[in-house]
């Protein structure tokens, strides 16, 4: 196969970037999209050009490092697939592929295709946990968790924090990420004591960085873990409930 890549090159956070075109020959259909970049980088090094910086690590679709806007879609054309798991067999011979970094105010470009996604950590910091210091836990089977609740929590918890939802959202909103994290914990019995505080704190933190949801559904379509839009509805409901609730009587602050 032969493909033509048009890649966003930007030397640093404060410098201007531009698209640069690179033709790549001898592309095998079994190659992953990141392996295509490996090959291209080898070529660049040979030619004395600085290789393209891109985030990647596990290359198994679970660490959430890889982050490329491929032909206008977050993680490219294959549904439910991270960039690292996208293979060249999904492209036709002679394809023209444009690759751009995630774009959002909260995801500033570091270099080329690398962006800083620390804002996600801040959202988790604001309440994306269950307070359970080591050592105090009771026997694991003491609290029963209905299978359906555990499965639903797992559906939400599958989020890999890659930021594709933000990248794909026309509003630059992080509702899918935040709702997945909130609902993972809010659906479990262990998460109930902090439920209302959690949703308020995490949503407030999210809105300091990201846009708002207008229910386009682009996030769901881009999510490499197929996380459902339903979690956003559940988050909205929890947030509104929390606003109207007498939280002190629920054992929670304010």
């Amino acid at each position: 196969m032969h493909v033509t890549l048009e890649v966003w090159r930007q030397p640093g956070p404060d410098t201007a970037g531009r698209f640069v075109t690179y033709p790549v020959d001898d592309v095998s259909p079994d190659m992953s999209f990141l392996e295509l970049f490996d090959v291209l980088n080898e070529q660049l090094i040979k030619a004395g050009d600085e290789p393209i910086a891109f985030d990647h690590d596990c290359r198994e679709g679970i660490c959430g490092s890889c982050s490329m806007m491929i032909n206008g879609r977050a993680h490219g054309p294959e549904r439910g697939t991270a960039t690292c798991q996208l293979h060249m067999r999904k492209f036709s011979d002679g394809a023209h592929i444009t690759v751009e970094p995630w774009r959002a105010a909260a995801f500033p470009v570091i270099k080329d295709l690398c962006v800083d996604r620390a804002a996600f950590d801040r959202i988790i910091e604001a309440g994306g946990y269950i307070t359970a210091p080591t050592g105090g836990a009771r026997d694991a089977n003491e609290i029963l968790v209905p299978k359906s609740a555990a499965d639903a929590a797992m559906d939400a918890a599958a989020c890999i924090g890659c930021g594709a939802c933000v990248a794909a959202c026309p509003n630059g909103a992080a509702q899918l990420f935040t709702s997945a994290k909130i609902q993972h914990l809010n659906l479990l019995p262990q998460g109930q004591p902090e439920r209302w505080e959690r949703v308020i704190n995490m949503v407030d933190e999210m809105e300091r960085w990201f846009g708002s949801c207008t229910n386009h559904g682009e996030c769901e379509a881009a999510c490499p873990k197929d996380i459902s839009l339903d979690f956003i509805a559940l988050m909205n409901r929890d947030y509104v409930k929390a606003q109207f609730k007498q939280r002190r009587l629920a054992g929670q602050r304010r």
């Binding site: 946990y129 269950i130 359970a132 080591t134 050592g135 797992m154 479990l188 262990q190 998460g191």
Partner: peptide, 10 residues
């Protein structure tokens, strides 16, 4: 026990 208390959805 610890992981379940933290909300790991086993």
């Amino acid at each position: 026990d610890q992981c379940v208390a933290q909300g790991v959805p086993f």
